Amino acid sequence: MPIPRPNPEPIPTDQLHITMPPTHASPADERRYRKERLAAALRIFGRYGYEEGVSGHITVRDPELTDHFWVNPFGMPFAHVTVSDLILVNEAGQVVDGRYHVNQAAFVVHSSVHRARPDVVAVAHTRSVHGRALSALGELLEPITQDVCAFFEDHGLYDSSTGVVVDEEEGHRIASALGAYKALILRNRGLLTVGDSVDAAAWWFITMERACQAQLSAKAAGKPVLIDHRSAVQTREQLGSDLVAWINYQPLYLQITRGEPDLLN
C-alpha cells in the first residue's frame, strides 16, 4: 500500500498543540497538581543522583495555606516517593499533614526562602556533584555557553560555610543572599534554585548543575572564551524566564510519569 502523500500546505499555527502551564478550577485541584509535580521532580532528581543519605529536598508552597509547604519525607529515597508520601509543614517546622518526619535543616533553609520570597512557589536544594565542586571554589557561573546565560547576573553566591543549617538566622542570611535571583551557590554546600512552579525550580537546578559541570570541564581543559556582556544579557532575556524553564522541563515530566506512573498514587 502506498504511503499517503503529506499535505504540502502549512497547518495554521492556531491548530497546532503547544503545552503551557494549566489553570486550576479550585485550590484543591492546584494542590493535587503541585504535589504531582513535586513527586515527579523528586523521582527525576533520584535518577540523576541528586541525593546523599537523608540530604536533599524540594519544597512547594501550598496554594491555599501559603505559609505551609509540601516536602519529601525525611529518610525516604527520592526514587520511592509518591504523592501520598509527601508531608505538609507549617512555618514552625511542624508536620500538619502526613505520616513522616521532616528534616529540620530543610525546614530552616526552605521556609526562610519561602518567607522572604512570596513570589516563589518552589525551592530546590540538594546534593549534586558538580554543584558542590564549583561551590567549593567559591565562584559564580561564567557566561561560557548559551544555556548558562540563563543565569547571567541572575544568581548569587553565599560566601560562608557553617556546616548544617539548624538556626533561623543562618536561614535568613541565605534568603538574603538569594535576594531576587533565581539561584544561589552556597559555598562548600552546593546549589539552591527557586521558581514560580516546581517545574521551573527543578529545571533551573538541573541545568545549573550541568552548567557547573561544563565550567569545571572547560577550565580544566584550558581558558574558556566568555560570551560578551550584551549577548549574555540578550540570551538571558530569551532563556531565563520561569515560563521557558517550565517548557524545557516538560519532556522530563512526561518521561518520568509514563515510565513510573506509580509516583502519582
Rank of each mutant, 00 (worst) to 15 (best):
Y48G: 07
Y50V: 03
Y158I: 00
T145I: 02
V81L: 01
W70Q: 13
S26R: 01
E52C: 06
S55L: 13
P27C: 15
A122L: 03
Y158V: 01
S128H: 11
L16H: 06
I87Y: 03
R132C: 06
F151V: 13
H125M: 06
V102L: 08
I18N: 07
V89K: 05
G93H: 07
C149Q: 14
K35N: 11
R32E: 08
Y50R: 01
L65N: 06
P73N: 05
G53K: 02
H110F: 00
V83I: 01
V81M: 08
G98N: 06
G75R: 10
L140Y: 01
H17N: 05
V108G: 11
S55A: 11
F69V: 09
A28H: 02
P77E: 03
A133M: 08
A136T: 02
V71S: 02
A106V: 12
A150E: 05
L42D: 08
S112L: 09
E91T: 12
V83N: 02
V121R: 02
Q146T: 08
A106P: 13
V54N: 12
G49H: 06
E142S: 15
A133Q: 14
Q104T: 09
A92P: 13
I87G: 02
Q15F: 09
H155P: 11
T162P: 00
Q94N: 14
Y48Q: 12
F69D: 05
T162G: 03
I144Y: 04
H24A: 08
A25Q: 12
H101K: 14
H57P: 04
D147I: 10
L38Q: 10
V120T: 09
H114Q: 14
M20E: 15
S111H: 08
G56V: 15
L140A: 03
N72W: 04
L42K: 08
D67S: 13
V108K: 02
P73Q: 04
A105K: 03
L86Y: 04
H68M: 07
V96I: 04
T66P: 09
L42M: 14
D97K: 09
G53W: 08
V102G: 02
T66R: 11
H114A: 06
F151T: 11
L16N: 09
L140V: 13
D67W: 01
H101T: 14
C149N: 05
P22D: 03
L157R: 09
Q146E: 15
S160F: 12
A116L: 14
H80S: 13
L137W: 15
A150T: 10
D85K: 12
G156H: 11
G46Y: 06
D62K: 03
R117W: 00
V148G: 06
A28G: 08
E139H: 14
V148S: 15
F152E: 10
Y50P: 10
N72S: 07
I144P: 03
R32M: 14
L134I: 10
Q94D: 11
T19D: 15
R117Q: 05
H57S: 10
R127N: 12
H110K: 00
V121Q: 05
G138H: 07
V121Y: 01
F151R: 02
I58E: 06
S84I: 00
S26Y: 10
S128W: 12
H155N: 11
A41T: 13
F78C: 00
M20D: 13
R43H: 04
